[in-house]
Every structure is written in C-alpha cells, then in structure tokens.
Design a protein around this nucleic acid. Structure first.
Lengths: 170, 170
DNA sequence: CTTGGAATGTCAACAAGGCTGACTTAAACT
DNA sequence: AGTTTAAGTCAGCCTTGTTGACATTCCAAG
C-alpha cells in the first residue's frame, strides 16, 4: 500500500488513471481548488463580522426555506451549539427569521429576511461567477465528470442529502 | 444576476450546463465532497493531538522534501506564525526535521523523519483509498473532467503551484 | 566594512468556529 | 404521568487562523 504504485497493477485494460501519482494529483487539485472555491465569499464576509459558517447557514436556509434547525444540523454536520452561535447572530442581525412550527411547536422553521436574501445573493453571485467561469472553460463533458467524481467522493449519508437537495431544485 | 436564470440565456448551442441551478449543484457538490475528502485523515488525526493543518504540512513536506519554510508558506497560504506553531510541534514530536540551509543559512529545509513518513503513509493511504474508489466508480473520462474543472477553479497563483507540483511528480 | 533588507523564529493577544458536557424549557408521544 | 424530542443556553476547551512587535542571522550592495 505504500510502495508507490499500489494501484498501478495494470490489469489488462488501462488503469493508469488509478496510479498513486494520479490520485495524489487529484488530492492536491481538491486542496487548491477548494481554496479558490471559498475565496470570493470569504472576501465579502470578512468585511462584516461573518465567516464561512454564516455563509453555509445562509446558503442552505435559502436553498430550503422553512427548514428546521435539526434538518440544517444534519446537512451542515456540526453540533447544535456551533450552529446556534451562528444562527443567533444572523437572527439578531435581522438576516434570518425563526418561526415556531405550526404542527409541531417544538420546531423552529428558518427563513431568510429580505436583508438575508440580499446577502445570499451577493455571496452566491460571487461563488457562481467563479464556478461558471470554470464550467465554461472546461466544457459540459468535463462538468459531468466533475460532478460524477465529487458525488462518488461523498459519504453515503451526504450523497443522499445532496441528491435530495438536487431533486428539490426547480 | 439574481433572476434565477442569468446564465441560462441559451445562445444557439446548448449552454444548459451553465444555468444557475447547475452551478448551485456544483457548489453543493464541492461542499459535500470536501467533507468526505477530509473525513478519513481527520479521523486518524483526532486520535493524536494533530489537526488538518498538521496533515497539510506533512503532505507537502513529503511531496517536496527539503522545501523551505517560505516555500511551504506560499503553498499553504497561511501566515508564518500559523505554520510555525504547527511545525514546532511536528519537529519536537520528531516527525519533521529542520536543517539549516547549506548555501543560504537563513533558510530551513524541511524533511520528514522515519516516524513522519510513517504517519504520512497512514494519512495518504486513507485519503487515497477514498479518491481511488471515487475515480474507479466514475471512470477515466470523468476523472479527466474532474481535474479540468478543479484546475479552472483555482486562483491563477495556485494553478501555477499545482502545475509545478504536478510536473515534479515522477 | 557597514548597513539595509530578507528569511526565519518567537512572544503575545485575539477571534472564529469546531468540540464536549450539563442543563432547561416546551411540546409531543405513549 | 412519564419519557422522549427539539431547541436553546452556559461554560469551557481545542485548533487554526489572524495582527503586531521584535530578535536573530546572514546575504549583498554600497
């Protein structure tokens, strides 16, 4: 497993794309690309008292308006204390609204306010601009491959969450 | 820009892969996939007193043995104070060796010790296993697209760093 | 030979954002 | 009535990022 070409055992057909060298390039590509991926929203957020955690909350509340705290917790994969700290500031700053559930009054349903939607737009415009440029440069076939590999890299639980979100879109 | 189909202006040929919906799916795929990407090494590291920052340092020192602190700083994109804290623990724990430069004695050249290489192996075996599974599931064409999109998503400076590393490999 | 600047390291302080654990409140379920 | 669940809160801890100030060492240019 540490001989430098563990998966380079070429078995008839070309599995050269599975060499440790190829895998390592993939790993480094993920590392550098993720930095670019977050760079633009981070710049916007650093001017305010917000960080990446706020962005994530805003993104998914916008994505699924009325989502419950528990729901968001599962998607974000953090503790409720961590999320609560973020939500508290967003609510008190008037970007997020928390409504008591009608059916189950224990639940809180989360919505973006007008101000919240405004910030969401600024953040996702910036992030989409980069993604759009990358997609356009690479072309539709590359984009399909990109999505396919990313999906295969997720934990199965996140894969389900991702698919659910995907299917709820439009 | 916030009308929900800003880039869906279908201009003759099919640019449907550039709709805001497609871009958002790409954004969410990056988010969920990156979690999976770091999950396995994170689990190993949490047993020790180390975190993701230690992993990154170990990875790139292994990748380019003898690299200087400044070099590493540029690749990792953190402040020297941040990196120094990480390096200090790695050096005092005997995982990394810091040698004074022969030509320029101000520089410190960094190398993994045997113990360091051992941990590096454990971490990258875990990370590669997931990447390998994802690559295999998706197939070579998808992998090519994956790499192409990621590369286009990097800042140009990181793109250069990535290419340099890529070309130094094997 | 001296001095300026570069590379490195260190100290201190701070903030964001993770975490655990303990506990409360209110509502719902059984 | 008693238990479970959803949410929130308090306190404290850790990692990892940040600034700013400052010391050391040493190369290189004047």
């Amino acid at each position: 497993m540490a001989d430098g070409r563990s998966s380079a055992a070429i078995s008839g057909e070309s599995l050269l794309f599975l060499t440790d060298e190829q895998l390592r390039q993939g790993i480094e590509a993920m590392f550098f690309a993720y930095r670019g991926f977050t760079a633009d929203p981070d710049r916007i957020l650093s001017d305010m008292a917000y960080g990446r955690a706020h962005h994530r909350a805003i993104h998914f509340i916008n994505r699924a308006p009325g989502t419950t705290v528990n729901n968001l917790l599962n998607i974000l994969g953090v503790t409720k204390q961590s999320l609560n700290r973020v939500l508290r500031t967003l609510i008190s700053d008037g970007l997020v609204e928390s409504r008591v559930g009608r059916i189950d009054k224990r639940e809180r349903h989360l919505y973006l306010t007008d101000d919240g939607r405004l910030l969401e737009g600024r953040l996702s415009d910036a992030q989409r601009a980069r993604m759009r440029a990358a997609f356009r440069d690479a072309g539709p076939e590359a984009v399909a491959g990109f999505r396919q590999v990313l999906e295969a890299m997720m934990d199965s639980e996140m894969q389900r969450a991702y698919t659910r979100l995907k299917e709820s879109g439009t």
